[in-house]
Design a protein around this nucleic acid. Sequence first.
DNA 1: TACGGAAACAATCGAACGTTCTTTTTCTGT
DNA 2: ACAGAAAAAGAACGTTCGATTGTTTCCGTA
Lengths: 215, 215
Amino acid sequence: MARTVGSNGVRTAQAIRQAGVKLIYQHGYEAMSLRQLAAEVGLQSGSLYKYFENKQSLLFDIVRDHMDDLMAKADEALAGLTDPMDRLKAYVGFHLRYHMTRKAHVFIANMEIRSLEDEHRGEVVAMRRRYEGLLDTILRDGAAQGAFKVVDPRVSTYAIISMLTGICMWYRPEGRLSQDELVAIYTDLVTAGVAEPEAGLAEGQARAEAQRARA
Amino acid sequence: MARTVGSNGVRTAQAIRQAGVKLIYQHGYEAMSLRQLAAEVGLQSGSLYKYFENKQSLLFDIVRDHMDDLMAKADEALAGLTDPMDRLKAYVGFHLRYHMTRKAHVFIANMEIRSLEDEHRGEVVAMRRRYEGLLDTILRDGAAQGAFKVVDPRVSTYAIISMLTGICMWYRPEGRLSQDELVAIYTDLVTAGVAEPEAGLAEGQARAEAQRARA
DNA sequence: TACGGAAACAATCGAACGTTCTTTTTCTGT
DNA sequence: ACAGAAAAAGAACGTTCGATTGTTTCCGTA
């Protein structure tokens, strides 16, 4: 056998990418063999090299594309919002929903950074820093306007992102709580955590809204 | 050559364990080869088998011992405290300090679970569930007493633990902020996030205390 | 319908893997 | 001083790995 009937380069490329995400998520990058990947797609391992330069570049492509997508969608979610509290809530909601629906990609992008070669890792770290910068700026703006009480925006950014991203460690679509309910709970936690108690009704408002969303 | 001068079984065993933690943390369990580990300790790879049954059991031993230690020290940190808010603060402080000083162990225990064989993984997951149960109980007790406003203790537990554990992704001993400062910031975030606003001075108190600790 | 490029196979490479086994050297207790 | 135990070397095992290459088959198009 050689070229198989009905074979199509574009479709195969997509299948490889998809299977790659699945297998790296399940077993880890190092533990996934190219023979395993090839079998998942229905190829011989050597044939994979029509579609990527080497194993490393497959990983990097997956991570880079994911980061690009994350950044673009985040910008979209925040577009048009100026009030820091509005932007914070939008960020929390976006981040949670994105991470709930793309567990595998997120897991890979966060956990397999160490498997990237230095140059590639540098690029990815820079991208992530840019993404974290979004929340950092929101917190700084909010603090400057007196809406937030943030002792250290950098630390708060790390803390909040860790908290939100952690959802992909246990969230299951068929689970007890809906996406909306979870977003409400987390939004409540985050806004209560950073809101300036004396700043108008900010906090009470957040709790009330969270309550309403759960109803 | 065979047995080397000054060789000592106990010392070598400790060195292997220590190097194992370091290398698994740096490269991941799958990516760490036994030849690499042996070289780090100054042995030939075959000689390692005097000290463990196989590669898998090395990983399991590391993770199990870590979990035992974590659980024991957590119990210790909470001993004698009955008020939910006191227990919550103690939990946060303990968890952060523990994770700041044992990054590698924590990282391995959290990330290499998937590399464990089914039976071993089951044991570790059960241990982790028990540890999470500590915080879950604290939140439920606090809510029952009206001190906390917790919509869903299970979710809040996951959220808080994710947030706290995330510190080991970026904390460096030589960093800008001291351990005490970081504990104060995180404690502030957590207590503000779960405290019942109308419950006495709980929240204001927490903020004030955090402020004081930073001074 | 013939041809050139695309797609995949099949065989193979050297290196590295985890593991086992035998041998050699050092240490320790009497 | 000596025997046995402990500690490690070192060679070898069968596998599997990522990667390369030459060949074969299919497809789109002119």
